[in-house]
Amino acid sequence: MVKVSLFLAAVLMQSVALAAVSPSYQFKILADNLNHPWALAFLPDGDMLLTERSGALKRLTAEGTVRFTIRPELPEMLLVSQAGLQDVMLTPDFDQSAKIILSYACGTLDANNTCLASAVLTDNGLTNITRIFQAQPLKSGAAHFGGRIAFLPDNSLILTLGDGFDYREQAQNPANHLGKTVRLNSDGTVPQDNPFVGQTGYAAAIYSLGHRNVQGIFYDAPTQTLYSHEHGPRGGDELNIITPGTNYGWPVATNGIDYTGARVSPFTTFTGMQQAIWGWTPSIAPAGMTLYRGTLFPAWQGNIFVAALAAKNVHRLEIDNQKVISEQVMFTELKQRIRDIRTGPDGALYLLTDSVAGQLIKVTPAS
């Protein structure tokens, strides 16, 4: 009884400590009636680019007014179930080139994978749309495409990929891109210092392997750390620190079980495979992610925010020396699936809710 009381006291103290450093906030809906919004990017002039999984790209003002909505003619874009338009990122030389990068599902229902395209942003839409990468091999089905993009300090980009759901064993096959993250130059070519370049039996674009479906990634420049998270099956969602050439275990080592209730693997850890720094069981279905370096919420400086679909909330993780030391569940009052979360240049947090009538929500300190 004493031990239980001590445990409860410790939990209560942690909750109080979290509450003490959690500033009050307010929501403002900037845009609504968005068709499964997926990603958000901020332009230097204050505007925003927003993608919808249904294939539309919108340009909005800082106040949420839509300047244009287009359906970019991305080569062989596939729109069904989880397949569609995904991430959008500005290239590091955007100020000179006006180039952006889009990720999307491409191909047919029987032969598809994740693609990247570059394009030039104009006042009215896009020009010079060019497919620069297609993950291999082509597979059937419409699930687990990954699709998040991050740029590294050398201007190379990381693209997260999925295992295609029915092809999970391929996440351990180094000859293809299923269940991997890949590192590319912004034109889609492979950097020659990738970890497996020149190795027989390895796809040269691979940066890390052993992933299920990575839909959140963020490079934190101050700590030079690349964080990503991925969906587990029933349980086993993971937060990882990504380093080149590392194997993250799926499906050999996992804390999740199959949707049928069967065991995916008898192992939760395995020799030579990197363990997650944090995890969620039951699954929260992690989606977008940001690491806060804004100014509006000083108490959240350096915290990771993870959007959750199934859990319908956001998880704030306090990080110390690349370790999670506390977690707080936030924004449950919205009662919505959260697809993406971004830190704006103004220091506000921006949320995208996932539905046929999705919203863009701005989070600022309570006045």
Score class of each variant (00 low, 15 high):
13 M>T: 15
91 T>K: 07
22 S>T: 15
299 A>Y: 02
63 E>W: 10
350 Y>P: 05
26 Q>T: 15
353 T>R: 03
306 V>P: 06
322 Q>P: 01
202 Y>I: 06
3 K>Y: 14
356 V>Y: 06
8 L>F: 12
145 F>I: 12
47 D>I: 13
88 V>M: 01
284 I>R: 11
52 E>Y: 13
235 G>C: 13
226 L>K: 04
208 S>T: 15
251 P>R: 11
11 V>P: 00
214 V>Q: 00
306 V>L: 09
270 F>H: 12
63 E>P: 08
287 A>M: 00
195 P>I: 14
6 L>R: 15
117 A>M: 08
79 L>C: 01
111 A>D: 11
136 Q>D: 10
56 A>F: 12
353 T>M: 11
217 I>A: 05
364 T>G: 08
24 S>K: 10
90 L>S: 01
119 A>Y: 12
42 F>A: 03
273 M>T: 04
287 A>H: 04
273 M>K: 00
129 I>C: 07
337 R>A: 09
276 A>Y: 06
314 V>W: 12
336 Q>W: 08
46 G>Q: 11
273 M>Q: 09
111 A>H: 08
176 N>H: 05
203 A>S: 09
32 D>P: 06
206 I>S: 02
55 G>E: 14
142 A>G: 14
328 Q>M: 06
322 Q>T: 14
338 I>K: 01
237 D>Y: 03
67 R>V: 11
258 D>N: 13
2 V>E: 14
55 G>C: 14
158 I>C: 01
153 P>N: 02
176 N>P: 02
193 D>Q: 13
208 S>D: 00
287 A>R: 01
271 T>M: 07
114 T>Q: 07
56 A>P: 00
60 L>G: 00
156 S>Y: 14
143 A>I: 13
74 L>T: 05
189 T>R: 05
179 G>L: 00
208 S>K: 09
307 A>E: 04
133 F>V: 13
359 Q>E: 06
344 G>D: 13
125 G>R: 03
32 D>N: 14
133 F>G: 02
25 Y>V: 10
74 L>M: 01
252 V>E: 12
4 V>N: 13
329 V>W: 07
14 Q>F: 09
201 G>E: 11
74 L>F: 07
221 A>G: 10
208 S>R: 08
235 G>I: 13
281 T>V: 13
43 L>P: 05
43 L>M: 08
304 I>P: 09
43 L>Q: 09
6 L>S: 14
68 F>N: 12
56 A>M: 15
160 T>C: 03
18 L>P: 01
121 L>E: 11
115 C>T: 09
102 L>V: 03
228 S>F: 04
296 L>D: 06
106 C>K: 00
109 L>N: 10
359 Q>T: 11
294 G>W: 07
318 E>D: 06
168 R>C: 13
34 L>M: 04
351 L>M: 06
277 I>A: 04
87 D>E: 10
132 I>Q: 02
285 A>G: 04
151 F>T: 09
176 N>W: 01
117 A>K: 11
221 A>I: 14
358 G>R: 10
363 V>P: 15
210 G>A: 11
173 N>A: 14
291 L>Y: 10
61 T>N: 03
323 K>Y: 08
336 Q>C: 06
186 S>N: 14
332 T>E: 10
251 P>F: 10
153 P>A: 05
309 L>A: 06
76 E>I: 04
